[in-house]
Design a protein around this nucleic acid. Structure first.
Lengths: 245, 245
DNA sequence: ACCTGAACACCGTTCAAGT
DNA sequence: ACCTGAACACCGTTCAAGT
């Protein structure tokens, strides 16, 4: 379902090694993708620290060193795991206004990241570029360009939405429970009021804002509103907001 | 310079153990803060993977197990390292419009994160609440509230800016070199044009947008513009943007 | 061709002991 | 009171060998 043509053919060519006639040579027990999916599954269950070459091998019923036949490194395995997570991500081209389309895309990205929390940390270090991931980018780009944004603005705008979503999930994942919220509120209330008057007064609001759908939607609205304002103002006054006044 | 009163007094009370008269009992070679700062320094030099209890101990000229007298865990040490990084962060209350003040704050946060890149990854897992970190929040809150935002809006607005900045630094740190940009552009150009027409056409723009001051400022402007629009529209029409149309 | 145990150079941390 | 080496239960990975 992802990178179809290339991967399938690669797997096939691996499988068809025995066509020589002797048919005695062993063929790999798994494909790269199968190993990656097993690793993703294990990752979901035991977290990033629990994903070990040893435990993964055990899970698959092979010797540890067998894994090094599929991947040069643990690093390379982890890249494949990120790819496997992206492969699950099946987005259908949305309809509606450009804002609606982007809302949908960003929502999909958010839920995809939430489905495999450990993936996020993995992606921090790699600028991922596999086709599966870029499918969403393509759709977002075309929505923005149809709305009248230039190519440069489109790239910038999509990047903002992408970064916001990533930042949100990274810091507002389901790890922000009610308990964490209470801790935050308590910590804010303990601050010296002389130095932190506004924060002490807003302790409750600060805690509420740590996560949740409402906060996510609010930020999304703000960004889309800002983009819309930028779009509307085009040509008239090319935004000299960055200057002094 | 950070959490002044408490920490200093704690360090003093540690030092003054020998006041009993005998003066023979050994006192700790370092304070907690000194160990944390040494760890931060080591972190900057060798990265997160290189920061080991063993190497840190060696750096300080003590046995490995001595560190466990200061911190129960490596986890607890890392928390202290994040705190030590926050302690360096000295922000002076800014002036100007609320947008200017927030621009300044966010810029400070960005450069603070850039100064110790490994800190970012550390902060992903901990909702940090030390006073040093919250100083910036207090200033941001008061700027937003003076601009007329409600407490709830203020908390939401500041959170957006915080998340955007974090996301930006996480994915657009100095690790995005020209080489990475070239890779991105090349990867985009290699996509099948039938499926990715917009992305292929915007390969150059996509690469440019991966990092850099211009992109950061653009996103910041968009968010501030969106916030301003929200502020201006208050009361009139309480934003039913989230609905269908 | 494909698989794998033993071994190496590391980790964080417990334990029992040293002054 | 403070410090610490030895030891334990782990890592990722190299190497040389097994079928």
């Amino acid at each position: 379902m992802y990178q179809n043509s290339q991967n399938v053919s690669k797997a096939k060519s691996r499988r068809s090694v025995g066509e020589g006639g002797q048919g005695r040579s062993r063929r790999p027990a798994y494909t790269r993708e199968e190993v990656a999916r097993a690793a993703l599954d294990l990752l979901d269950r035991v977290g990033l620290d629990g994903l070990t070459m040893r435990t993964l091998a055990q899970e698959l019923g092979v010797g540890t060193m067998t894994l090094y036949g599929y991947f040069r490194d643990k690093e390379e395995l982890l890249d494949a795991v990120v790819d496997a997570a992206a492969a699950e991500h099946n987005i259908t081209p949305p309809s509606g206004s450009w804002q609606d389309q982007l809302r949908y895309l960003v929502g999909e990205l958010r839920s995809a990241l939430a489905r495999h929390p450990a993936i996020l940390e993995l992606r921090l270090r790699r600028p991922l570029l596999s086709p599966g991931i870029l499918r969403g980018t393509e759709i977002g780009y075309s929505a923005l360009m149809q709305a009248g944004f230039s190519r440069a603005e489109t790239a910038r705008a999509f990047r903002i939405l992408f970064l916001y979503t990533f930042g949100f999930v990274a810091f507002s994942a389901e790890s922000v429970t009610d308990e964490v919220r209470h801790q935050v509120q308590a910590a804010a209330l303990l601050l010296p009021e002389a130095e932190y008057p506004t924060l002490v007064a807003s302790a409750k609001e600060t805690a509420e804002v740590m996560g949740g759908d409402a906060q996510f939607e609010f930020g999304l609205d703000i960004i889309l509103q800002g983009l819309d304002a930028r779009r509307a103002g085009r040509g008239r006054r090319p935004t000299r907001r960055s200057r002094g006044e």
